[in-house]
């Protein structure tokens, strides 16, 4: 049972890293949002499994929140935003998929190299989970850096948050309050960013942040 529990936990955490990689090369908005829904789904599975093996029933609530909010509500909202913005058919030019993937692999290697030695005293479960979680966070950052479209940056941001949840549930004893407040703040962030997207769009007729930069008033 113990081996199996570990293996399944690793399976979920590893799948999350894999889905993060998938996020990196999605160049269509619809595909990107769907992949993000999958990302959230994997997280909720992983959290539910942790709840099961750690005998921590409150984690089920976390899993339910992840499933409900991030796998259903947010992708749905994003789909609507994308359609209303009229960018659901546009192709975002993702520069150098090959290089981005290579950089991602490097980041995963880096996080394993960092995490495994310094968590030598922690339990096996926490160790591997932390390494995977750090990879997910770094991949999310990489996505935010490499994308130009504001919607994809929002998705990158939320995938970082998924990585944080993975890290937090891997360690035993995270209070539910923390998780709820994090999830709630992510929702607020989505609303705020959504409003901003529309405002930006109204004003500049695009959500390409490169164009935004040209309109700033504080040029040197």
């Amino acid at each position: 049972m113990d081996r199996l529990a570990l293996d399944v936990a690793h399976l979920f955490a590893g799948s999350l890293v894999l889905v993060s990689f998938m996020l990196l090369y999605q160049d269509r908005m619809t595909g990107l949002i769907n992949t993000f829904a999958m990302h959230a789904l994997v997280v909720s599975f992983s959290v539910a499994w942790q709840a099961y093996i750690q005998l921590a029933p409150h984690l089920y609530i976390t899993a339910a929140i992840a499933l409900g909010v991030k796998a259903v509500v947010i992708p749905f909202a994003l789909h609507r935003i994308v359609v209303r913005l009229g960018i659901h058919r546009t192709i975002e030019p993702v520069v150098g998929i090959g290089q981005t993937m290579l950089a991602g692999i490097g980041l995963v290697a880096l996080s394993i190299m960092v995490m495994l030695p310094i968590t030598a005293q922690a339990g096996t479960l926490a160790r591997e989970d932390l390494a995977f979680a750090l990879s997910v966070i770094l991949l999310g950052l990489l996505m935010m850096v490499s994308r130009r479209n504001a919607v994809s940056q929002v998705i990158g941001f939320m995938s970082i948050e998924n990585g944080l949840i993975l890290a937090a549930t891997g360690a035993k004893g995270m209070p539910l309050v923390v998780e709820i407040s994090v999830a709630f703040s992510i929702l607020i962030a989505l609303i705020v960013i959504g409003i901003f997207l529309f405002r930006i769009r109204e004003r500049f007729e695009t959500v390409d942040i490169y164009v935004l930069h040209q309109h700033r008033g504080e040029q040197p």
Partner: peptide, 28 residues
């Protein structure tokens, strides 16, 4: 360094990301 006051959002994100990766590498 005055130029660093006038970068794009993405450039700032890249700076943060780069700093994080460099620090992690130092740690590794």
């Amino acid at each position: 360094l005055n130029k660093a006051q006038f970068l794009t959002i993405r450039a700032y994100l890249t700076l943060v990301f780069g700093a994080l990766v460099v620090l992690l590498m130092v740690l590794a």
